[in-house]
């Protein structure tokens, strides 16, 4: 039930990255979620759907890439485990395993939509011109 906190954390990063990329809107969001991260994909999705309203990701789709657990045995260096036996190294039977992958909760990537560079003369372009009373476009000369 802490998925809403995770999604709040996601939006902190998402909004910053979308701004940096000059995004008009976010089309899709991809998360990398470890099977032992403690987060439930279904709950992440419903929290995301609730949270995105009125944000730059208002219409974004959420994709979740699940990452299986990859252990490393501290005794023999093995990297597979026998799930049915609990958390046990498949090679040497040691229980002293470290979780190398499978606990992560990452914003992997964003697909963003960027407005194309406006052609000269269009409204968007005019907004970019210096203000009328700036020294580069003196009023007097424009009138003349």
């Amino acid at each position: 039930m802490h998925e809403l906190s995770l999604i709040a954390g996601l939006f902190e990063v998402l909004e910053e990255k979308a701004r940096e990329a000059g995004a008009a809107r976010v089309a899709s969001v991809t998360l990398r979620v470890g099977e032992m991260s403690g987060a439930v994909p279904e709950l992440l999705t419903s929290a995301f759907e609730a949270y995105k309203k009125g944000t730059i990701a208002d219409r974004a789709a959420l994709k979740i890439n699940l990452v299986p657990v990859r252990p490393r045995c501290r005794s023999c260096g093995g990297s597979s485990w026998r799930e049915e036996a609990g958390f046990v190294c498949a090679a040497c039977g040691s229980r002293d395993l470290e979780v190398v992958e499978g606990r992560e909760l990452l914003l992997e990537r964003l697909e963003v939509e960027v407005d194309d560079e406006p052609r000269p003369g269009r409204a968007a372009d005019r907004r970019r011109r210096p203000a009328r009373d700036s020294p580069r476009t003196p009023r007097a000369r424009q009138r003349a």
């Binding site: 995770l6 999604i7 954390g9 996601l10 902190e12 990063v13 990255k17 979308a18 990329a21 995004a23 008009a24 089309a27 998360l31 990398r32 992560e104 909760l105 990452l106 914003l107 992997e108 990537r109 964003l110 697909e111 963003v112 939509e113 960027v114 407005d115 194309d116």
Partner: peptide
């Protein structure tokens, strides 16, 4: 309208950590 792919790879718990 151009679509751009932005690779982020940042922890959702980053600010808590």
């Amino acid at each position: 309208m151009t679509t751009k792919d932005v690779l982020v790879l940042q922890d959702l718990l980053g600010s808590n950590k």
